[in-house]
Deep mutational scan, measured.
Amino acid sequence: MTSCHIAEEHIQKVAIFGGTHGNELTGVFLVKHWLENGAEIQRTGLEVKPFITNPRAVKKCTRYIDCDLNRIFDLENLGKKMSEDLPYEVRRAQEINHLFGPKDSEDSYDIIFDLHNTTSNMGCTLILEDSRNNFLIQMFHYIKTSLAPLPCYVYLIEHPSLKYATTRSIAKYPVGIEVGPQPQGVLRADILDQMRKMIKHALDFIHHFNEGKEFPPCAIEVYKIIEKVDYPRDENGEIAAIIHPNLQDQDWKPLHPGDPMFLTLDGKTIPLGGDCTVYPVFVNEAAYYEKKEAFAKTTKLTLNAKSIRCCLH
């Protein structure tokens, strides 16, 4: 018999989150649709729960009410004593943790798909938090293969000092899905179709896995975050240069030392320094102006996964 890495157990509980950011409308629209008619997301033997994560922000069509829901799922915020004085999103995070967690427990949901849009030209993107997770690498390989020839990129946010504390991190297997470009507060049919297909293929993978299909060893190309880059700023902290036209919409493309990065209003080009080629992502993302992030630098690498098969009882 072929030796293989056996994944822990079959997958039982899956959640699909929309509206973690209330103005990213593809996930909101799909989740609302699936709450009314969820036939397309159901798979035999699998509990799939669509869920609106930040209903107040969705109602106002804004990213958040008090603070970013997708950055506060750490033990400090989840452990705060519940009171009306807490920011709305912290209270909501505790409610979500109660419903789908608790985080880092045996009772937490197996998989959470968190649906997002970006204003950046990132196409279909899967966000991975753990480079050693054979199950998710296999799932992402399946999704990428199923979507081809449509490109699907994998963004690895594993980093020693950049801690995200994402909404989906309460699950055993957290999956971020990011599709763009799409303006905030807008629905685009092409973007919706791409996100819908990503979810379909992900659920198909889980179904095949649960039925005992063995997935042979595989490898995927990923883009691992190195650092986030702020806009150049003046002495008052105001933005002093904008994304250069040569960099705009060039997510995932190589940016070499000396290539144009920013452009000042008086026409001066600010190039990339250093001696390493990087791959920019979230270029000129609207939501990241407040976070002082013009783009993120990534490096390209390959992740390998062992063969996996479900432990059938």
Rank of each mutant, 00 (worst) to 15 (best):
K59F: 12
V186T: 14
G274Q: 05
K297M: 15
C311K: 06
T62H: 15
I308W: 03
H256A: 15
S83D: 06
V31F: 01
Q138I: 03
A286L: 05
M261H: 00
P260F: 04
G27F: 02
K200Q: 08
D251I: 01
K200H: 12
N246Q: 07
V278F: 11
C311A: 12
Q94H: 11
G45L: 05
H207S: 09
W252D: 02
G101K: 07
K291M: 13
N121M: 05
K197H: 12
E238Y: 06
P271Y: 06
K291R: 14
S3L: 14
A241R: 01
E158M: 04
E285R: 03
A93D: 06
D110R: 03
R168M: 15
R309A: 08
N121G: 04
N23E: 05
L136G: 02
P271K: 07
I170M: 14
S105A: 08
E211D: 12
D275E: 13
Y153G: 08
M261K: 03
H5P: 11
K80V: 07
G38W: 08
G19M: 02
I270W: 05
V58Y: 10
D230I: 14
I225F: 09
T62Y: 09
A219S: 15
A93F: 15
L136R: 00
D104F: 14
L126R: 02
T167H: 10
Y279T: 05
Q138R: 01
I239M: 09
L46E: 01
P257Q: 05
T119S: 07
I239L: 10
T145F: 06
R56F: 08
C152M: 07
E285P: 03
K103Q: 13
D104H: 10
P55M: 15
R196W: 02
K80M: 08
T302M: 10
G258T: 06
I170P: 15
L78W: 14
F29E: 13
R233V: 08
K80N: 13
W252R: 12
P87C: 08
L263W: 08
T302Y: 11
P183F: 01
D107Y: 14
H141W: 04
F205P: 03
R56A: 15
V48T: 07
V90D: 13
Y289L: 11
E76W: 13
V154K: 00
A286E: 09
C218N: 04
F282M: 13
C4Q: 14
D104W: 13
A148T: 14
L147Y: 04
R91W: 13
T302P: 04
M82F: 13
E293R: 09
A57C: 06
L162N: 12
E76H: 10
P50F: 02
A240T: 13
P216T: 07
I170D: 02
F205W: 05
G22M: 09
T269D: 15
H98G: 14
S307N: 07
I226E: 10
Y155L: 08
A165R: 12
L301Q: 09
M122P: 00
N70F: 06
R63A: 10
L147P: 00
V31Y: 00
K300F: 04
A286C: 12
C152H: 00
A148R: 11
A93M: 11
K172G: 05
F17L: 07
A219Y: 07
P245C: 03
E40W: 03
I41C: 06
Y88S: 09
L156S: 05
I72K: 11
I191H: 04
P183I: 01
L150T: 13
N77Q: 08
I199T: 06
S146M: 09
C276V: 11
V281N: 04
P87G: 14
G273M: 13
N23A: 05
I112A: 07
E40D: 09
V281A: 15
N236G: 08
N304K: 10
F282E: 10
T53R: 05
M122V: 08
P271H: 09
P257R: 04
Y88C: 09
A148N: 15
G212H: 06
E36A: 08
A219V: 08
D85Y: 13
V175H: 02
R309G: 07
S108N: 13
N37K: 14
K172E: 04
E95M: 10
T26G: 07
P151S: 11
D74F: 08
N236P: 02
E158G: 11
Q182S: 10
P280D: 01
D251C: 10
A93Y: 08
V229R: 03
H21C: 11
I220Y: 04
H116N: 07
V154M: 05
K172M: 05
Q184R: 12
I65V: 07
K213L: 12
P102Y: 12
L99T: 15
H244S: 08
T298K: 00
T119Q: 04
L126S: 00
R71H: 08
W34I: 01
I206D: 02
V154E: 01
L86M: 12
Y164V: 14
F29M: 12
I11C: 09
I127R: 13
Y288F: 15
I177Y: 00
Q42G: 12
C152D: 00
K292V: 15
T62M: 08
V48E: 01
R196P: 01
T269P: 08
H313W: 13
Q194I: 11
E293K: 06
K172V: 04
Y109T: 10
D204R: 00
K80S: 15
C276L: 10
L255E: 01
A305Y: 02
